[in-house]
Design a protein around this nucleic acid. Structure first.
Lengths: 121, 121
DNA sequence: TGCAAGCCTGCAAAGATATGCATATTAGGG
DNA sequence: CCCTAATATGCATATCTTTGCAGGCTTGCA
């Protein structure tokens, strides 16, 4: 098969893998280091089962690495730079329409990049 | 709705939009400038109808701009930098397995980035 | 050893996407 | 005008994803 097609398929698979709101938030959540499943679930207000399923997919595509400690499974980004690369995508999004008037793209970027200690914002 | 969720949805929509082998190749095809539908279809060996449908989606998401000249519709990237950003994603892909032994990631990148005058490679 | 916390996996229903085919639209040429 | 080329659109079918729920596995602790 032509390499060009192989590459486009691999790229598409990779993009599909991260193209989900939950998974994007999970990746940003792991930006600063490893976290276990329950912490992620709590931070994003998602059922743990769902988080686990998403992580299984990310794991299958080698986007995250797992470390087991006791009963907890800690995950980290295989490519730490991935989170920053995703944030760069904001420049391609015509996001103005959907946000409240006061919001500005920079504040959105800052917010997204900020650590989410709780589930607000 | 929390902005954080809005952003993750918008990002996911954007990523889903480009996460298709045909559309990725089309975006790379438009990297160097505008092209009309038939030229793209010919370059990628795809049915023109399909190319047109993909372009309609990209247009709806404001990722390409259209210019009509006579019977031909020329498309160009709304964000010229998009193609380069996509190429950057290659670093996150564990692509070694799927390529022939001789191929190296750099050559793949060069190949992908190279202009496709015909449908080979 | 028994129990519970923390995760993972299988499965089925619901939802979203992709794709081909038939049909419409628009513009240039004769 | 009519015909054809170049695209676009509508629709039905096939396929892939998402998601909740039920049940299973492993580890720590009493």
């Amino acid at each position: 098969m032509p390499s060009r097609m192989i590459v486009s398929r691999e790229l598409a698979d990779f993009l599909k893998m991260i193209a989900h709101p939950d998974r994007l938030r999970m990746i940003e959540e792991l930006r600063l280091g490893e976290k276990d499943v329950s912490s992620i679930a709590a931070a994003l207000s998602l059922p743990a089962t769902r988080v686990s399923q998403h992580l299984a997919q990310l794991r299958a595509h080698r986007l995250v690495d797992e470390r087991r400690a006791g009963r907890n499974h800690f995950y980290r980004l295989s490519h730490p730079h991935l989170a920053a690369w995703i944030v760069d995508a904001l420049q391609f999004i015509d996001i103005r329409n959907r946000l409240a008037e006061g919001d500005h793209i920079d504040s959105v970027r800052a917010l997204w990049t900020a650590q989410s200690r709780n589930a607000s914002h």
